[in-house]
Amino acid sequence: MISDVHLGTKGSKAKEVAQFLKQYSCENLILNGDIIDGWQLRKSGSWKRKHTRFFNRMLKMIERDNTKVFYLRGNHDDFLDQILPLHIGNLSILPDMIYESNGKKYFITHGDIFDSVTTNLRWIAYLGDIGYTFLLWLNRLVNYHRRKRGLPYFSLSQYIKGKVKSAVSYIDQYEAELAKMAHAKGCDGIICGHIHKAENRNIEGIEYLNSGDWVETMSALAEDENGNWQLIYYNEIDFRHKGIRDENISDDTLTNRYQDLKIVAFEKLASDQKPPFLF
């Protein structure tokens, strides 16, 4: 599961998320909102070829692996309201969904519906979006100079949010309210995005999961065959010796090449099946 890619903005890590998806296959791919940033595209955003490649990768997953894709509406891609719900083959576009696995139920929503600022005071949300866009521009500038000095990536906006008490308080309250909603719906857990803060923890007996984003954190959520969820960070994966999957390479060569890749599966493998690229 991924969320908050914000395609159409300069800060979107479209190239990275496409490379990430090339390494894995899955039975279900959930795009949990803000995949396309309609707010920025209506103002100063622009659509690049790398943004289109993300959807090309998604379509290849549907064609090659018969992946079921669920695209949930976020506040930045609220233009989807005009077509919800929509089902075309293996693609479903929905406002939210219930996901059942290994005897557990999860309520999956982007999360903006629980954000009173975004829901009720849209003009304040737009103003905040302008400030966040500036912060991301500053973040790119900081990391440009860090790369030149051989330093690792540093998320300036995450650092600032962690230092501002009001932001920390808002996030805590946001997570608690989502956990209450999951409990009210009779679910064991809730999965969301929206606040760009990856998380996997328990809140009063409710499993709270947040997939993070592909603007700063570059993170995703994945479930193994036992129903256990884990966060995967793009920066933790070593792509140097893995390259891109080549259909002309033998299965044995591929197995050796990917044997140290972090593996997460949605389904168990048959005993005679080669280790695939599971996400």
Rank of each mutant, 00 (worst) to 15 (best):
D37M: 12
H51V: 04
G38P: 05
S92A: 07
L84H: 03
K48S: 07
D77A: 07
K43M: 00
E63Y: 12
I62D: 08
W39L: 07
W39C: 01
W39V: 13
N56R: 10
Y99S: 01
K60Y: 14
F79C: 07
I35D: 01
N102L: 00
D81H: 15
V69A: 08
F114V: 13
D37Q: 13
K60Q: 02
G131Q: 15
I130C: 03
G128H: 09
M97K: 13
W47S: 05
G131T: 15
G45W: 06
L94D: 00
G45Q: 09
N102Y: 14
K68V: 11
G111N: 11
L80M: 12
R49A: 10
D78R: 09
D112R: 06
E63M: 05
S92L: 01
P85H: 03
P95F: 07
D37S: 09
F134L: 07
S92M: 06
W137K: 14
D37C: 04
P95W: 04
L127H: 11
G38Y: 13
Y106A: 02
L41S: 08
H51Q: 04
V142Y: 12
T109M: 07
F134Q: 09
E100R: 11
H51A: 02
R64M: 01
G89D: 06
R57T: 11
S101I: 07
G89N: 07
T67W: 05
K105P: 03
V117I: 14
K48I: 01
R122G: 04
F70T: 07
T67R: 01
D129M: 04
P85T: 04
F54V: 15
M97F: 06
I98D: 08
E63F: 02
D78F: 15
F70V: 05
I98G: 03
W39K: 05
R122P: 01
L91V: 13
L136Y: 13
L84F: 01
N120F: 02
I88M: 11
L84K: 13
F70G: 04
